[in-house]
Design a protein around this nucleic acid. Sequence first.
DNA 1: GAAAGTGCTTTCCTAAAGGATAGTACTATC
DNA 2: GATAGTACTATCCTTTAGGAAAGCACTTTC
Lengths: 122, 122
Amino acid sequence: MAPATKAKTEIHTAESCIASVRAVKDALEVLSGRWKLPIILSVSFGTKRFKQISKELNGITDKVLSKELKELEANQLISRTVYDAFPPVVEYAITDHGKSLNKVIAELGTWGAAHRKKIIGR
Amino acid sequence: MAPATKAKTEIHTAESCIASVRAVKDALEVLSGRWKLPIILSVSFGTKRFKQISKELNGITDKVLSKELKELEANQLISRTVYDAFPPVVEYAITDHGKSLNKVIAELGTWGAAHRKKIIGR
DNA sequence: GAAAGTGCTTTCCTAAAGGATAGTACTATC
DNA sequence: GATAGTACTATCCTTTAGGAAAGCACTTTC
């Protein structure tokens, strides 16, 4: 069997492909790493405090969680509210912009579960 | 304003939250890094050769691309076909399993474009 | 007055990601 | 016989991600 030949239509396709690739790369830049999406998901289930998020993510260290929360806040994906009390009380909530990731994350979760079954088998 | 109080219903919510988080983490493990999703997207636009993918991704080095392609093949997300010719001809195509990521990637692209406008402003 | 509780920060360290650069295999073309 | 063409591989190096462990602030509870 011979390799496929270049068709004229591919030129047009290539351009839209490149544009799409760029958009996906933009998204990945903001959402990079193992934790940002899981954090957003956790918070989108309801306003949470630091320790609660930490427990639900299972495995993240305080340092990393703190750093990720800052980045997410900077990108307006979550909001942070401090109450002056002691011991400290800080609440994290999803923003409207963060909510706009709902579909992405839902799809990803669905796919993750399906992939696990297919490849790992359980 | 006082911090929100813990409601009974949150117990139930927390469990489904943790399950969702796990699924998302599973997905992220397979799709980790800056390049895998863009590669899958590129290939899902049509069967491509090494150099073509390289050009469309804009910025990836040969070494990294080669490595990523191997991982994606191992996870059955793309297929690799070698034709014995000189210079070499190798074609990469999306698999059915890879196609199952279409919605995820499309959503991500849409979001990426919107986010760029919102935060970066162009 | 010791201990617990919360949301961090700090220091130190390892592993992995990823980039730069060059090289190879072999044929075809000029 | 130099050069181009393709899909890599190999080496070396820098940067980033991320983890482990401990410390701190200040109040309340025992």
